[in-house]
């Protein structure tokens, strides 16, 4: 079941620049697409769901949690996938990196090992368990990043252009995992309109504002028209 994401008159400023202003919306859909030009505020929106950016004004609730007050708690239920696969790998080998996600979550050592093995299997990375992470291809690295997020059994996955640097085959693999039932709720920031069209709802940002949201087909049609 998808939880509730609620923004109430949320604003964020970086210095002189308004990254996001006056965003109010309540979302309960399972697949949420976010589109907009570079610098429109869509990445800032995504980062607020994981307490990577905190609101300067207004209130955010992610499944009932206030990220400003309980950053650690919101990060336990919300996993984040970034565009650059390289920048998400923390530990030297594949298995160690996946295991890192379970650190400090009170999971017993034996269970960590078992869950890592199982998760690598799901992502087809078993043979590479002890390989240095940097020897993986770009697509494999992104699979590793997603694997490291899903092993935590997140309630929500936020993905900021997760397929931007991938070839067609790996793009397909990543998307299949993101849209699988293992991801109860997905916030997908993307320039890929075909991908946005697969969502239940689409949010369109422009100049730091939530311009419109609603039925994917309609929103995407207007967005394409505006920049055709």
């Amino acid at each position: 079941m998808a939880g509730t994401i609620a923004f109430d008159r949320v604003g964020v400023r970086f210095g002189e620049h308004n990254a996001l202003s006056d965003v109010t919306i309540t979302l309960t859909q399972a697949r949420i697409g976010v589109i907009g030009l570079n610098g429109s505020g869509k990445s800032t929106f995504a980062r607020m769901l994981n307490a990577l950016v905190l609101p300067g004004a207004g209130e955010v609730r992610v499944h009932g949690i206030d990220p400003s007050a309980e950053a650690a708690r919101v990060r336990r239920i919300a996993g984040f996938v970034f565009a650059n696969p390289d920048a998400q790998i923390i530990m030297p080998t594949v298995a160690e990196d996946v295991a890192f996600s379970l650190r400090g979550r009170g999971v017993p050592q034996a269970e960590i090992a078992a869950r890592v093995t199982a998760e690598l299997e799901v992502f087809g990375l078993s043979a590479l368990a002890d390989a240095p992470a940097h020897e993986l291809s770009g697509g494999q690295k992104q699979l590793l990043a997603l694997c490291a997020v899903l092993i935590t059994r997140p309630e929500l996955v936020i993905a900021d252009e997760p397929t931007a640097l991938l070839d067609a085959r790996n793009r397909r693999l990543i998307i299949d995992h993101l849209f699988s039932e293992r991801v109860p709720q997905l916030v997908l920031v993307t320039h890929d309109l075909d991908l946005a069209a697969r969502c239940d709802v689409v949010l369109r940002f422009e100049d730091g504002r939530l311009l419109e949201h609603g039925d994917p087909a309609e929103i995407i049609a207007r967005y394409s028209e505006a920049y055709a």
Partner: peptide, 14 residues
Amino acid sequence: SDTVTSVNESAPTT
């Protein structure tokens, strides 16, 4: 220690 300052926010922008 539990609060977060965004990288973007605290780095000088200009």
